[in-house]
């Protein structure tokens, strides 16, 4: 094909499904996993509590919970539900599982230290994270008008990724890019898809990831936060 041929394609020409089918994915997975959404909620509360504690064991536990969330949303939402209508989602599913595996290794192997933040700062970080992670899922409900389309952390990829990025800032900068690369790629893919589908409200989810991930590449935590 010539360059002119390629330029004649629009973003939506690469999508083989419409917004109705995409938004139904959220309803379907919620119907199918019911009532196990409770586990996702417990995971969110646990991570918030662990962010408040901020000790070495808490950091390891946060990473293990994040690892479980990445594997669950990758193997479930991406590979079982999204993949059959959009093949790149299956490739992302495998990447999510790999990311989960890397997070597990990092949790168990890295020599984590206690965070240098004061208790009040840790409390703010934990509660702030919980409030945002609990509110963002309602964007999908606002888009569809259907409560069953709630996009929970650990179950759906956009929420899992957006909620993970702030926690990944505990990694030192020299290794952090390894863990921020996939969130960045996912955010770009998700934004392009939502834009082409005309689902504007949900663009907030990957936009949050994108902003946090770009900031994460630049942000440098205090030395005491880093594994040695």
């Amino acid at each position: 094909m010539t360059d002119a041929d390629w330029l004649s394609y629009s973003l939506s020409d690469f999508l083989m499904f419409g917004p109705e089918v995409f938004l139904r994915l959220f309803v379907r997975i919620n119907q199918d996993v019911w009532p196990w959404q409770a586990i996702a909620v417990v995971m969110m509360v646990l991570i918030a509590g662990l962010l408040v504690r901020g000790n070495t064991a808490a950091k390891r536990a946060i990473l293990l919970l994040l690892a479980a969330a990445w594997v669950w949303s990758g193997a479930g939402f991406l590979m079982e539900y999204y993949g059959p209508i959009n093949s790149p989602a299956t490739w992302f599913g495998w990447a999510f599982i790999l990311q989960g595996s890397l997070l597990t290794v990092a949790a168990l192997v890295c020599p984590w230290e206690r965070t240098a933040r004061r208790a009040a700062q840790r409390w703010q970080a934990g509660t702030g994270w919980l409030v945002v992670t609990a509110l963002l899922p309602f964007l999908v409900v606002a888009q569809t008008g259907n409560w069953q389309s709630l996009a929970l952390f650990g179950i759906t990829p956009d929420l899992t990724v957006a909620a993970s990025v702030p926690c990944l800032l505990m990694f030192p900068r020299r290794v952090r890019w390894v863990f921020l690369l996939l969130p960045l790629l996912w955010a770009l893919f998700s934004m392009a898809t939502l834009w082409a589908l005309g689902i504007r409200l949900m663009l907030v989810l990957p936009a949050v990831t994108l902003v946090l991930a770009i900031a994460g590449f630049r942000f440098s935590p205090r030395p005491a936060q880093s594994p040695g």
Binding site: F17, G18, V21, P84, I85
Partner: peptide, 11 residues
């Protein structure tokens, strides 16, 4: 773009 509905039995 119309019949690609995956395993969605309703659709």
């Amino acid at each position: 773009r119309t019949f690609n509905v995956g395993g969605d039995e309703q659709l």
